[in-house]
Structure formats: C-alpha cells, structure tokens
Amino acid sequence: MSKAESKTVSLVPAQLWGRLRKTVLALVLPVTLVWLWQLAGTDGAIAGGALPTPDRVWAAWMKWAFGTSTFGLNPYIGTWTQSLWFSAGRVVYGFAIAIAVGVPIGMIIGWSKLASAMIDPTIQWLRPVPITAWLPISIAIFGIRDFGAVFLITIGAFYPIVINTTQGTRDVDKNWIRAALMMGAGQRDVLTRVVLPAALPSIFTGLRIGLGIAWTAVIVSEMVAVKSGLGYVLWDAYYVGRMDIVIADMVSIGLMGFLSDLLIVSIEIWALRWRRLQSFDA
C-alpha cells in the first residue's frame, strides 16, 4: 500500500516541462498544415481554388453552428447541433445493440467449444463483407429511414466486439475459474463474476475498434440511405458546392469520433482501476 501512496507526489517542474514539451511537439505538425493550407488557398494554388481557406471554413462553421435560422431557406445556418445529434444518436443506438449482442455471443463462443464450432465459422465467413456492401440490403429492408443506419452501425461494430470478447474469454486464467467452482459457483456465476470481469480488458479493445467503425458506418449510411445527420449534410453540401461546410462537417465528424473514444477510454480506466494498480507492483 505504501507503494501506491508514494506515487501520488505533486508535479515537479521537470514533469511540468515534460508535459509542455509534449504538447508543443504534438501541435507543430497540425499548425503547420493549417498554415500551409491557408497560404496555398489564398493564392488559389490548391485544386484550382476549389478548396476554401481555413478562415472561411471557420466562419461558415460558426454560422452553421450558432447562426439564427431564417425560415429554413438556408440549411447551413444554425443546424449543426441538430445534425450532430442525429448522427450521435444513431451511433449510440447501433453501438448499444452491437454490445448487447456481441459481448454475450463472444463470451459463449469463448466459453463453449460446441458454440465455438457452431457459430464462429459463420462469423468468419460473413466478416469479410464490408459494411458498405450491406447498404442495398439495408435500404431494401428498412427503406430510407433511421433504422437502416442503425442496422449498418450494429453490423460494423459487432465484429470487433465479438472477436475481442471471444479472445478475452479464452484467455481467462484457468485457476480463477477453478477457484470459483471450488467456492460453489455455478456456470452463471462463473460467467458473470469471473469470466466477464477477467475478459473486460479485451472487451474494451473491441469496443474502441467497434466505435471507430460505427462512425464510419453512420456517415456512409447517412450519405446514401438517410436524409439527416452529418453524413447527409456532407454529401448535400458537396452537391450545392459548399466546400466550406464539407470541411467543417469533416472536422465535426473527427471531433465526435475523438470525443466518443475519449469517453470509452475514461470508462475503461474507471472499470479497470484494479489493473492500473497492478502496473505499480511490477
């Protein structure tokens, strides 16, 4: 215990300097890129002037986000939040279904040799079909409606979740399971109280990969199969030649992907705090 306590020392100047240095180093490349873009854009050197400069993108974004809508004539004034929530809502919905289906199936495959022999091959055969190839079927079944996007997100996120959960379940220390059985645990208790927590690190790996795919899936399906959300705006703005909105939209998608990953990582750090202590011990 004294080990853990001795680690909580306040930041000494050297550490502070180290962090500052890291932040500065990380910023050099993006700042340079944006600066070059601004320069090139002003001179009309990029793509014959097709690309708006960063300052114009920023201005359009601010209007899109905070402008007051004028009788719905211009769809790019004050509608950003709405589009964002459409996409985010679909991601949450589809991702939740993928977890609810993927984690139990992954655990069953990892736990039972019979289930593995019966289910795993089918998953491996279906997996090479890219989510984009599911689009026509999705539209045929669900039409140009919300659930088409949710369906695609679920399929995309399902594979990494199920595969990592299976691996995590197979890797559980045999003696933990024996210990639980010895203490009178039934199969159910072993699965929920031993296998699930033990497989959690792998499951989180699957969740992070799955979430990235979920954002890809929502944008693709909104571009084709749904008439709202960031993906719809992306394609629509392109058609009417609003490249400033296109770029602002891209940055928004990236930001949402980044923030939702941060959320998962925070939950992971909280759920696996027993593991971080372990690294002190080593």
């Binding site: 220390d173 003696n175 933990w176 024996r178 210990a179 639980a180 109280r193 031993v194 927590p197 033990a198 027993w274 593991r275 372990q278």
Partner: peptide
C-alpha cells in the same frame, strides 16, 4: 492454489 489465484478485481 500455489499462486493464491485470488480474483484481482
């Protein structure tokens, strides 16, 4: 067990 095999969480 030899290594105790406690549930670490």
């Amino acid at each position: 067990f030899q290594e105790a095999s406690l549930l670490p969480w």
